[in-house]
Amino acid sequence: MRDTLKTAYIIARREFAAYFATPLAAVFLTIFVAATGAFAFYIGGFFERGQANLFAFFAYHPWLYLLLVPAVAMRLWAEERKSGTIELLMTLPVSPTEAILGKFAAAWAFIGLALILTFPMWITVNILGNPDNGVILTSYIGSFLVAGAFLAIGSFISALTKNQVIAFILSATICFLFLTSGMELVQNVLRSWTPRIVSDAVASMSFLSHYEEITRGVIGLDSIVFFASLIVFALFANAIAVSQKKSA
């Protein structure tokens, strides 16, 4: 177990550094911080609401992730397969589990860094009023969990193809379905031809409903279990994809 974590850590460190070896990191971090701010001020009406909280800021995170997280995840495995380095990695004394954990951890930490860089929002709202910092903290945790779930899905899809563009489009689409599965638009379609239990089950898979609960300050066990099991499941599928598709 200790060896597993250590090897995963060595891989994570390399992956994390790889984001900064290209302009990807600078582009991503800048756009993430600018876009979260812009959404909060212009679309969320941060000032117009006249409330000392960050609802307007957090409400748009999942939608931004829809575009940005698949962009971070798409290279994780597709690039290894395209450049052939997967053959190198998988013939080093590294198990697929270690490689998957390491890569996932690096990408998640990268998004975590992007979230930390939005701290001026938190400072701003604390200067303007007296927000409930507990709710802000749980919102950050919730946002991080949603990003992690998107990322795990993206990492899995990335292992299925050599082509990063395909990986991006597929993961964005699947993440979109998970995001919106609780919305009326999707539910109306489902209710018309499936029994109630199916549409309810689909609704309970919705990232948005779990996320909204958390941003109200309630981290329920069900939400934690939901995101955690989704991440574990996607990474497990990722492991199967990596060992099945190495050669193709």
Binding site: T7, I10, R14, A18, T22, G84, T91, L92
Partner: peptide, 25 residues
């Protein structure tokens, strides 16, 4: 093992790449 085409992480330098290999080993 030297795989066909000698793949390596292009964004690293030989020094950092070999260091990574040594750590993994």
């Amino acid at each position: 093992y030297l795989p066909e085409g000698a793949p390596a992480y292009g964004d690293m330098t030989p020094a950092t790449f070999l260091r990574f290999i040594a750590e993994i080993r």
